[in-house]
Design a protein around this nucleic acid. Structure first.
Length: 565
RNA sequence: CGGAGCGUAGCUCAGCUUGGCUAGAGCGCUGCGUUCGGGACGCAGAGGUCGGAGGUUCAAAUCCUCUCGCUCCGACCA
């Protein structure tokens, strides 16, 4: 492709609305342009990379026996009601009403559609396992699209769904897909870590996320040198050892006017936050419950829901809290709160002479001792891990960092089959629900993550595998000799299957070199009078400083060797 | 949805506080010339409903009200 015939609108300055490196560079290198918040056009150069990522994914999916299909973006809202996800996704679901007054959902994912498909067309265990995937645009009306292409309202996703008779068989495919994902991200040149994850609205127990560590990421990774890795929602920390410094004292009520926050309370009582018990009133599946965490800890609602055996929890409103505790918000405490299930974090269990709310406006209790003054109905890990925490497995120091989620694998099992009636006859002629695994990859995020983690001050540095072109020919000047050499190189390389971008523009060398670096093509061949006087051209990988002088034919051989290595 | 900020040429921005003359700069773009190995220079040009609507005023990019869009922080989420 000649640059003069291409559409590669590079720009010198960072776009004013871009914050992260990948966003800036994708715009500057002419890969994409924004249409509206969370909606981007991919220009020819950017689309080439996206298609290369697609091809890598297709190869690896085929290698593990997944079959490509294509499902509708528009989906009946009724299907989403049946699985309860109309509510679970809430306003994130893009939807509209059609001319007949029916609710239509723009698919954010396709569990409902594929399960219906399988329910209607698979009836025997002999047809299992089955593994289907598609690569398609998904729609999610995000609260806040941001960071360029990292969180958008419309994005390209590879979504796969596998179906099984037994949990063992599901695990076999899950493992295969997990390995295939590793190969995909390896081939895309990403450094990634795999973390244990929460399943969120997809559902299911075991779940892993593929994360690319970078400051630009939105997700928080919690890792330990022993190999433990989880995302923040899932991470478990060792329960801090509290060595009782004093013997239990008597309960004492103190006047604490207006102290409704941990901060105010630590000042007023002159007590460290770790001596306080935070009592939170929540509603789980419509029923109120109390959650207890140490004052310096944060509640993890997903863990709480799990411990309480409910599908989700949310903070109770002020009215409910006042009714249940008999006090204004900020003065709740576990002592005497006998009507509610009390779920205490493990770290609360060993506390001695803690301070809590007194269930009386403007009063707190001192000398509170779990076991003596109140008894939790459940003790579990219900808090968020925090910097400074130790690893639950090896007691090493937990490290916190940011990452971009590029892939996620789940095992929802029978969740959708039960809701949508996907059953098969087993060997004994009895109906049983099909078990499901689901697997997702964000293609745009792969692209952004590759840029984010590999760029330098000059611009993008593509890995060979997903570079829009493998080689850029930089032609300096328009002399007959230069032109003829460029032409020959272009033909020879193209004939050998190499993807070449030929910068034939009548521009100054600096402009061309800077653009070449900006768009990040892995190999650059410079054709100029200087080297050509001795019959040479210059070959320089994007990552190297100094070029190598070679005769054109040798340059072609070297390029092909570098591409195939 | 709460908090903050920003909308002026294709892009990046100045001008707004304290209303006033033909609305500016750099980059990019067009033409001509000189240049040509890491974002050249000269000359001549094209390009603007100052986000939109309403209001105040003799007069609005500038002040007021409403509205739309974008960005960041938070909440929430994959």
């Amino acid at each position: 492709m000649k640059w003069s015939k291409a559409f590669i609108p590079t720009v010198k300055e960072d776009p004013s609305d871009a914050e992260v490196v990948s966003h800036k560079l994708m715009v500057r290198a002419g890969l994409m342009r924004k249409l509206a918040a969370g909606a981007y056009s991919y220009l020819p150069l950017g689309y080439r990379t996206l298609r290369k990522i697609e091809q890598i994914i297709r190869r690896e999916m085929e290698a593990v026996g997944a079959l490509e299909l294509h499902m509708p973006v528009i989906q009946p809202g009724e299907l989403w009601e049946r699985t309860g996800r109309l509510k679970a996704y809430g306003p994130v679901l893009m939807n509209f009403t059609d001319r007949h007054g029916r609710r239509v959902v723009l698919g954010p994912t396709h569990e409902e559609v594929i399960t219906t498909l399988v329910a209607d067309n698979i009836s025997s265990y002999k047809q299992l396992p089955l593994n289907l995937y598609q690569i398609q645009t998904k729609f999610r009306d995000e609260y806040r699209p941001r960071f360029g292409v990292l969180r958008t309202r419309e994005f390209l996703m590879k979504d796969a769904y596998s179906f099984h008779l037994t949990i063992e068989d599901l695990k076999v495919t899950y493992e295969k897909m997990y390995q295939a994902y590793c190969r995909i991200f390896d081939r895309c040149g990403l450094d990634y870590v795999i973390v244990e994850a929460e399943s969120g609205p997809i559902g299911g127990e075991s779940s892993h996320e593929f994360m690319v560590p970078t400051e630009a990421g939105e997700d928080t990774l919690v890792r330990c040198s022993c190999g433990y890795a989880a995302n923040l929602e899932r991470a478990t920390a060792a329960t801090p050892k509290t060595e009782p410094k004093e013997s239990p004292k008597d309960l004492r009520q103190v006047h604490t006017p207006g102290a409704t926050t941990i901060d105010e309370l630590t000042k007023m009582l002159n007590t460290p936050a770790e001596q306080l018990i935070k009592t939170l009133v929540l509603v789980g599946d419509g029923k109120p419950l109390a959650a207890l965490v140490r004052g310096d800890h944060e509640l993890n609602e997903a863990k709480l829901a799990h411990a309480a055996g409910v599908s989700n929890v949310q903070m109770a409103d002020a009215q409910t809290i006042e009714k249940l505790t008999g006090a204004a918000v900020g003065f709740a405490g576990p002592v005497g709160l006998s009507d509610l299930p009390i779920i205490a974090d493990k770290a609360v269990q060993g506390m001695v002479n803690a301070a809590t709310g007194a269930n009386k406006t403007d009063y707190h209790l001192l000398g509170v001792n779990p076991g003596r003054d109140f008894t939790p109905s459940t003790v579990a890990d219900i808090r968020l891990a925090a910097p400074g925490d130790r690893c639950a497995k090896c007691n090493g120091e937990l490290k916190f960092s940011k990452g971009i989620e590029v892939g996620h694998v789940f095992q929802p099992g029978a969740k959708y089959s039960d809701a949508l009636g996907a059953q098969v006859l087993n060997e004994k002629g009895k109906n049983q629900p099909v078990l499901m695994g689901t697997y997702g990859i964000g293609l745009n995020r792969i692209m952004a993550a590759a840029i984010e983690t590999r760029a330098d001050e000059q611009g993008i540095i593509w890995p060979m595998s997903i570079a829009p072109f493998q080689v850029i020919l930089v032609q300096l000047g328009q002399s007959d000799q230069v032109l003829a050499t460029a032409e020959k190189l272009y033909e020879d390389l193209t004939a050998r299957g190499c993807e070449v971008l030929w910068d034939d523009r009548d521009a100054r060398p600096g402009v061309k070199f800077n653009d070449a670096d900006l768009i990040g093509i892995p190999l650059r061949i410079t054709i100029g009078e200087k080297a050509l006087a001795k019959g040479n051209v210059e070959l320089k990988p994007r990552t190297e400083k100094q070029p190598q002088l070679l005769e054109p034919a040798a340059a072609v051989d070297t390029v092909m060797r570098l591409i195939n290595s």
